[in-house]
């Protein structure tokens, strides 16, 4: 029944867009950071990579917060409890959330790209930029799963502080703000194991038009599987605790 999916997509998007206090900061934050710290690079080639880094930062942030925080907060409401008795509600709800995360991520990336084109004039071709945007959107998925897992393993009150404690270090370790080669040596070593680093590696390859390193794809696929598993167990645990 397509109708269910349509209704959930519609109401999820309406709920979010009608709360500008939520979505405006979410989509503006990456472009603001980029404008302050990323746009000053004068080398046109390097500025392409910096733009890609901030795009990675944007999609990861949206996927992580849009999912992690909102699931943790919603599942404690009585409206959420009511929806559990509706037939066939699980997938339309989950997919509409993912869809909403994708839309917000797209807006956030487009803002970063626009700011870059105006201020830093990166050398990357239009084709490479479009490809990078599409690949960046795909990266929403693993980090959304990470968000879902976090949402189910934390309480509504703890979700935001915990998400910050995980997301900000991961962005730094992954080299999204400073190129990994400029990080302290120990941090460089750790960087190679983070999901954020591998997401960035993929986007750098796309924007620089060189082959995407397969190790990064494996790492990210591995992380996706791990996050999906954590999300699933978190969900089961929550079900058992609430309704067992």
């Amino acid at each position: 029944m397509l109708q269910r999916y349509k209704s959930h997509f519609k109401t999820t998007l309406l709920s979010l867009f009608r709360a500008p206090g939520y979505w405006v900061p979410t989509v503006l934050f990456p472009v603001m950071l980029y404008s302050m710290f990323g746009a000053s690079v004068s080398n046109a080639a390097i500025s392409s990579f910096v733009m890609a880094s901030f795009c990675a930062y944007a999609v990861i942030g949206v996927g992580f917060y849009q999912f992690g925080v909102s699931i943790a907060q919603d599942r404690e409401t009585s409206w959420e409890r009511f929806q559990r008795v509706l037939p066939r509600v699980f997938w339309p709800k989950l997919l509409s959330r993912l869809f909403a995360a994708g839309i917000f991520a797209l807006i956030a990336i487009l803002l970063v790209v626009a700011a870059a084109e105006i201020m830093a004039k990166p050398s990357a071709s239009a084709f490479a930029v479009i490809k990078m945007i599409l690949v960046a959107l795909a990266i929403v998925l693993p980090f959304s799963l990470f968000g879902v897992a976090l949402g189910y393993w934390t309480s509504a009150r703890a979700a935001v502080p915990i998400a910050n404690m995980i997301f900000l270090p991961l962005a730094y370790l992954g080299g999204l703000w400073t190129h990994p080669s400029k990080l302290p040596e120990v941090i460089q070593k750790i960087s190679e194991f983070t999901p954020t680093r591998h997401a960035a590696e993929i986007l750098w390859a796309v924007i620089g038009e060189f082959p995407v390193p397969s190790t990064s794809i494996y790492w990210l696929a591995g992380y996706s599987a791990l996050f999906a598993l954590l999300a699933w167990f978190g969900y089961r645990r929550d079900e058992a605790r609430r309704y067992g």
Partner: peptide, 15 residues
């Protein structure tokens, strides 16, 4: 952030 009609239509769509 939803109006009554939108809430009703969301629930209706499951049946």
């Amino acid at each position: 952030a939803l109006k009554s009609r939108e809430i009703i239509e969301l629930v209706r769509s499951h049946y």
